[in-house]
């Protein structure tokens, strides 16, 4: 459902992505690992449609459509979700209000009716409890004063609510202790199904013990330099990235 072909992208004239090729089929979980600065986060932003990137070559097809032609909100309505590495604070906007506005915006974009209040509350409460998100947290302004763990649980709760078909997670494990990591991973695993594709970006093998990927890619200097099964992550954990960095 996702095909990235020879993707090149610049930021301020510097080439960050230098020919990415990646195909994700429905139901597959792909992990991307790699050292800092290899372009992992850039790839996630380009998929979501952030403004600051100039695509110089290549294409991205999502369910057969040209993703690069779509605005960020259109991509979201089409089913692309990005769990941010650093979720953004919006003062004064209760988390619950944000969730409802987002859900209804997507439903409207797809020509569906808005959810009424009781139905919405029911769904939110259920998803929130699965991710240890307290009712009190839903009333607080979005991400304002949230701990690292709270922010990440909130991201995954949004993912569960919005039910995307492509889940991109950018270092969702950073800033999490062992317990929080388990809660978040369980949340992600619960969303795995035969229709949904996932792209998990991480530095550490640790996350992949919980979210077991079908394919692992190693990214270095804007390219995927090696792909393999889940055992590739273990190999990396042992030997580090040095071999691949040199190879690139």
């Amino acid at each position: 459902m996702l095909q990235i072909k020879n993707l090149h992208a610049n930021v301020d004239g510097n080439e960050i992505l230098r020919g990415i090729n990646l195909t994700i089929k429905p139901g597959e979980v792909h992990a991307i690992m790699g050292p800092n600065g290899s372009g992992k986060s850039t790839l996630s932003y380009v998929l979501a449609g952030k403004d600051d990137y100039e695509i110089t070559e290549g294409e991205i097809l999502f369910k057969g459509e040209d993703l690069l032609e779509m605005a960020p909100d259109e991509r979201a309505a089409a089913g692309v979700f990005l769990a941010f590495q650093y979720p953004i604070e919006i003062p004064g906007v209760a988390t619950m209000t944000f969730l409802r506005t987002a859900m209804n915006a997507q439903r409207k974009a797809r020509g569906e009716a808005e959810l009424n209040t009781p139905d919405f509350m029911k769904i939110v409460k259920q998803k929130a409890s699965e991710l240890n998100v307290s009712p009190e947290m839903l009333k607080r302004p979005l991400n304002v004063g949230f701990s690292g763990g709270e922010k990440k649980r909130n991201e995954i709760m949004q993912m569960a609510l919005l039910e995307p078909t492509l889940c991109v997670m950018d270092e969702t494990d950073s800033g999490l202790d062992i317990d929080a990591l388990r809660v978040v991973s369980d949340g992600v695993n619960a969303l795995r199904n035969s229709e949904r594709g996932m792209l998990v970006i991480t530095h550490y093998q640790r996350l992949l013990d919980h979210i077991v990927p079908d394919v692992v890619h190693v990214m270095s200097a804007g390219k995927i330099v090696k792909s393999g099964g889940k055992e590739l992550a273990l190999e990396l954990e042992e030997n580090g990235y040095a071999d691949f960095v040199n190879a690139a």
């Binding site: 449609g49 991509r75 919006i90 944000f98 506005t101 915006a105 919005l162």
Partner: peptide, 17 residues
């Protein structure tokens, strides 16, 4: 961008913020 990524248009995002 965060609001748009969650599906809101520019105008919806501004009204919310």
């Amino acid at each position: 961008f965060y609001c748009q990524q969650r599906g809101m248009t520019d105008e919806e995002a501004i009204a919310l913020i």
